[in-house]
Amino acid sequence: MTLHVDAAVRLGDFDLRAELVAPAGQVTAVLGPSGAGKTTLLRAIWGSVPIDAGTIRTGDRVLDSPPGTFVVPEERRVGVVFQDYLLFPHLTALENVAFGPRARGWSARDARAAAAALLERVGVGSQAGLKPRSLSGGQAQRVALARALATEPDLLLLDEPLAALDVGTRVEVRRDLRRYLADFAGPAILVTHDPVDALALADRVVIIEAGRVTQEGTLGDVTSRPRTPYVAELLGVNLLVGSGVGHAVELDGVSVATAQPVEGPTLVLIRPSSVALHLHQPDSSARNQWSMSIGELNLLGERVRVRLVGPFELVAEVTPDAVAALGLVEGGSVWASVKATDVTAYRA
């Protein structure tokens, strides 16, 4: 059973128009900058915000379709893991997880037995008797997941499930989360602003910016062909927008040579590692050479990301040794070169 969303929501000044499909048995990551409407999208799906137009349905079951249909949250069968978990502070971990089944009419004893089994499965069985304030971040996250799964939902929503965790816990919880998500039969939607979460957990990605879906597809699609600067930045590549004229793309006053011919509105993608830096204009086969100045140097692990400012902005990635050998400093001048064969261009 697939989740289909084609909805418009207006909340004050904010306006979200989202169209997306989340297939069963897959994890769909919704990525976007903060304030893009990710959480609003989730709220529309589980029913805390009614949509103004469009339809939300799981398979054939319509959850919201104004003006006729609105299924209230308690009847939607959507499991939600909230950003800060929202575990009921007055209930133990066990009672938190048993809450859903009890609300759906199970006997207290059956609900508790199911809850205990679930807590065991997500690895916090021995914390069952603790109140949320005594749980660590990682434990609380697991209890929240168990609580959402306890009602056997048709659909699972996770709102920034790892954002509140420290780095060490995060890696561990992310690894386990991947396993639980793989076991979940319905569609799962993971909202995050961290591409690492998306890369680690999701099969598909939906990018939302300023209330609009700007890209949707498999991870491979989106990583290799980002359509907006945000996506490119997020996935660490340079993305330029220009207009194709044969074997070159015209940007503002500059042209970028490409290996394959392109026409019309074009996206140009250059991997930072394909950008070579020189102190003087290079005498090389590289078709693209620009004189630029160094805006910023950032050490990222074994690489240095060099932000170049010139006719356009470009990020280059070089080794710390290269930075030392060339004597690169912020504010200095440098030549950047890119082989035409390293430029990917595709129609916008």
Binding site: P73, E74, V80, L86, F88, F99, G100, A103, A148, T151
Partner: peptide, 13 residues
Amino acid sequence: QRYEDAAASLGAR
């Protein structure tokens, strides 16, 4: 009030 929302999402009337 988000606790009440959470309870509703769990099926509580």
